[in-house]
Amino acid sequence: MTDARFEDAGGEAPLYLGAETPEDLGVLSALVQDAVFPVNEMRWLPRKRRFALLVNRFRWEDREAAERERRPYERVQSVLAVDGVLSARTQGFDRKDRDLVLSVLSVAFEPGTDGGGRVMLVLAGDGAVALEVEALDVTLKDVTRPYAAPSGRAPEHRD
């Protein structure tokens, strides 16, 4: 018997992952890095204590296969949801600008007391979303089939 390998993952199988520890959240953060979304696809539902984003995420998990098979890079629409949200704050962008498209750089957890803390969504251009949570409870779920990335390129990061 051999250990499971990343390469063994099921091609176009949709992701549905949860994070309850900072280490888990690091995996989700890597998967949503460079995800883009219009500002109007961001929702905070105070009564349900839920914050959600509908993002177009780059399929980092498929990058090497796309290069090896010489096929287009892909994106997929995904819901990034945070549950147990007590408050939500934004900075660095105008939520009323309906033409604004934002890009996720990272998602991190800053622990507080009694298991609570703050989930921080860091956005390109100095934007951020701070979510005070009673516990770390984040999910990422693909909700469409993958599609060819419109740019035809993988996102790049320069130091």
Rank of each mutant, 00 (worst) to 15 (best):
R50W: 06
R59G: 00
A30E: 13
M120C: 11
Q77K: 12
R71P: 09
E132L: 08
D24E: 07
R95M: 13
A65K: 15
E41K: 10
N56D: 15
A128R: 10
S29A: 10
V119G: 05
R43M: 12
F51K: 01
R49L: 03
S78T: 15
K96E: 11
L102D: 09
E41D: 14
E61N: 11
L105R: 14
G125L: 09
L121P: 01
G127A: 08
S103W: 03
L80K: 06
G92S: 10
S29D: 04
R47S: 15
L105W: 06
D99K: 13
V122Q: 09
L53Y: 05
F109Y: 08
A30P: 04
R47P: 04
L100H: 10
V82G: 04
G92W: 02
V122E: 12
E64V: 12
G84H: 05
P46G: 07
E41Y: 07
V82I: 14
P38T: 06
D114A: 14
Q33V: 04
E67D: 12
D126N: 14
A65P: 04
Q91G: 15
N56C: 12
R43Y: 11
Y73K: 04
A124D: 08
Q91D: 15
L123W: 00
L45D: 15
V107F: 00
L121E: 02
F109R: 06
G84E: 08
V119E: 04
T90F: 08
K48F: 06
V107P: 02
L28E: 12
D114F: 01
D34R: 04
L54V: 15
V79H: 03
F93D: 07
E69T: 05
V82A: 10
V32G: 04
E69P: 03
A108C: 05
M120G: 10
W60S: 11
L100W: 06
L31F: 03
G84A: 07
V39F: 08
P46R: 05
D114R: 13
W44F: 14
A65R: 15
L86S: 13
S78I: 09
F37Q: 07
E69V: 00
V79G: 01
F37H: 12
W44H: 12
G26Q: 09
Q77D: 13
D94A: 08
A108Y: 00
D94G: 11
R118M: 15
M120Q: 12
R71F: 02
L31T: 12
L102N: 04
R95D: 13
V122H: 02
L25G: 07
L54Q: 13
V79Y: 01
R57M: 01
A108W: 00
K48A: 15
L123N: 05
R70I: 07
V107T: 07
V129L: 15
G115R: 06
R49D: 11
G127M: 06
L53I: 10
G127W: 02
F37I: 13
G26P: 05
F93K: 04
R59W: 01
R57S: 07
